[in-house]
């Protein structure tokens, strides 16, 4: 295993973040952990602060207080560019709509995070071979992966390419933001199978955010956002 097994894949403690905008809001997380290899479903309706929490975990925004660690390493002490690098090294991100760059080939899409993460690139070994091994395992045809622009792929194929992009170089944590929301039940199940299999193979922990409690039985643990986080929006509003 590339990362320390004993430390949790993700740890938040005493985290407080506030955004002084036109509509000020704040988010507080007293304690939240994901063990190494654990699969956690985070349930929350839209506007419940999911995006803010994810942007803190991924190091896009830094909390004013508290600590966030990933695989035992703290992200909170790092400054902007270092946090970006840290994200590239440690986190594989899957978006709601499998956001690939539509004009680039799936292969280039998959290799892109390695461009910003030298250690992860080193872990991947022969990056191109590693990417193709992943897409082979995910059942994507080679000529499609190497030659077509991503926009030519079907939704299911884009999904797989996005999974490969998150998994390449074996980051300790995979963050998936509503990846199944645009799929029907059958496809959802198939996608989760795929995701779980490959996360397990890569030894990655999984944090998946969804508004659908029906997915809960398939995870090791499911948590409601309200249980771990307190959010305030506006002045004195609860």
């Amino acid at each position: 295993m590339p990362f320390e097994q004993s430390s949790p894949a993700l740890g938040l403690s005493g985290v407080g973040f506030s955004w002084p905008g036109r509509v000020p809001f704040s988010l507080e997380v007293e304690r939240f952990e994901i063990a190494a290899g654990e699969r956690v479903l985070l349930l929350g309706a839209s506007g419940s602060g999911k995006s803010t929490l994810l942007s803190l975990i991924c190091g896009i925004n830094a909390p004013q207080r508290g600590a966030i660690t990933i695989a035992g390493e703290s992200i909170t002490g790092l400054r902007g560019a270092r946090r970006d690098r840290f994200r590239a090294e440690h986190i594989g991100v899957i978006f709601q709509q499998f956001n690939l760059l539509p004009y680039a080939t799936p292969l280039d899409n998959i290799l892109l995070p390695l461009r910003f993460a030298p250690q992860r690139r080193a872990r991947a070994g022969q990056a191109r071979q590693a990417a193709l091994a992943l897409t082979d395992a995910l059942g994507l045809p080679r000529d499609l992966v190497e030659r077509s622009p991503a926009r030519a792929l079907s939704t299911g194929q884009q999904q797989r390419a996005a999974v490969a992009r998150a998994l390449i170089g074996m980051p300790p944590l995979i963050v998936a933001d509503e990846p199944t929301s645009s799929l029907d039940r059958g496809s959802q199940a198939a996608f989760l199978d795929l995701l779980f299999t490959h996360c397990a193979a890569a030894g990655a922990s999984l944090l998946m955010v969804s508004h659908d409690p029906g997915l809960a039985p398939r995870f090791d643990r499911s948590v409601r956002l309200e249980e771990i986080a307190r959010m305030r929006r506006g002045e004195g509003e609860q």
Binding site: A81, D84, R85, A88, F95, L100, P113, R115, F116, A117
Partner: peptide
């Protein structure tokens, strides 16, 4: 997408 992939 670039940002999520770790681009500054």
């Amino acid at each position: 997408i670039f940002r999520a992939m770790g681009a500054r």
